[in-house]
Design a protein around this nucleic acid. Structure first.
Length: 346
DNA sequence: CGCTCCGA
DNA sequence: TCGGAGCGG
């Protein structure tokens, strides 16, 4: 979700498409929940059933996380996954709205199932995706066993990832959402996958990785600062005010910020009559200085092979042969990274 | 989503 | 060597 409208406003000139290998040697702070959601939504059977172990526990997220992480490391990328902590109070309305939307999807799914419409069931099933604590714990345990670092954010994962990128602990933040830019990441990496394909109508279109630099985005939008980008986003709608300002579309919002210079000025003039469900200046403060921690380490280790087998094969019924093959790729890729960059690993 | 297999 | 189909858990 995030700031979808902002994404539509960022033109192609501000985006640099590239090959995964061009990110070789970079530490990228990945929004773990964003990735897990994608896996849980897309790794499914045609009827919408996710992958599950023999005890009925969902494993789609582990499947996706395992193979994607290996691919990133093979490309020379050093991923550090950032997990969400406690959501900010400001997000409560959005979280409730999402829960309601899922509830509705669940009902539609049940209806489609009763009518025997398999494709419809699959469509709605993807909207009902949720990440339980145990799924997050599984993912963290797998990453630890793979030797890949992860960080527990105090609150929003994207804010923590942006903080790490701003400090230089990471080169950029990786997510599909644009919020990292608002939180101060100097670079946002999107579509971070080997063969990112997206269904457009009936066709599948290749979606290569892309980097959006904060400075490029500002230049393209003719804005002077991240603060102005935040102001723009608040007019368009964020997770903390999903509806934005009714009646103000992207072009008008951009014009308001360009001409009035700041949200504060606009609130005193053109937006004087607007009623806000939450204080927009509180939202601005959240983006400018969100909860984040410096208590983390970005350390890559040799994979603990036995532990990966325990989690994936013994605990969750993955095929031993496939996991073995994956671990071999991971091991090779890690040793290559070690010889090519003298510092980084270990 | 990503892997593997198989047919061209 | 490529790419679509089908499966993974």
């Amino acid at each position: 979700m995030g700031v979808t409208e902002l994404g539509k406003l960022i033109p192609k000139e501000a985006r640099k498409e590239l090959k995964l290998e061009q990110l070789s040697g970079r530490v990228i702070a990945l929004d773990a929940y964003n990735a897990l959601y994608q896996f849980l939504a897309s790794i499914r059977q045609p009827d919408g059933t996710p992958l599950m172990d023999s005890r009925g526990r969902v494993t789609s997220h582990l499947n996706g996380l395992f193979y994607r992480t290996i691919n990133l490391v093979e490309a020379g990328i050093r991923p550090v996954y950032v997990f969400d902590g406690k959501p900010p109070e400001l997000k409560r309305r959005e979280i409730e709205a999402r829960r309601a939307a899922k509830e509705k999807a669940r009902e539609q799914m049940a209806k489609a199932a009763a009518e025997g419409k398999t494709e419809e069931v699959a469509k709605y099933a993807k909207r009902v995706v949720y990440i339980t604590d145990s799924m997050a714990e599984d993912a963290k345990a797998l990453l630890t066993a793979m030797g890949i670092p992860w960080v527990q954010a105090p609150s929003e994962g994207e804010a923590q990832a942006a903080h790490m990128a701003a400090k230089g602990s990471a080169w950029g933040a990786g997510s599909q959402d644009y919020d990292s830019l608002l939180f101060g990441a100097p670079r946002l990496v999107r579509n971070l996958a080997v063969s990112s394909r997206r269904k457009v109508g009936e066709e599948y279109v290749e979606v290569p990785p892309e980097v959006i630099e904060l400075e490029s985005a500002l230049r393209a939008l003719k804005l002077k600062s991240r603060e102005q980008l935040i102001d723009l986003a608040i007019l368009l709608g964020t997770d903390y005010n999903p509806d934005g300002v009714p009646g103000v579309g992207p072009q008008r919002a951009l014009k308001i910020i360009q001409e009035h210079g700041s949200l504060e000025n606009a609130l005193r003039t053109v937006l004087k009559a607007v009623e806000w469900p939450v204080d927009p200046l509180e939202i601005k403060r959240m983006f400018l200085s969100p909860p984040a921690t410096d208590n983390y380490r970005v350390e890559f280790r040799e994979p603990d092979v036995a532990e990966v087998y325990r989690i994936l094969v013994e605990e969750h019924d993955f095929s031993r042969e496939r996991v073995e093959k994956g671990l071999e790729r991971l091991r090779k890729a890690l040793s290559r990274s070690r010889t090519s960059s003298l510092d980084a690993f270990f």
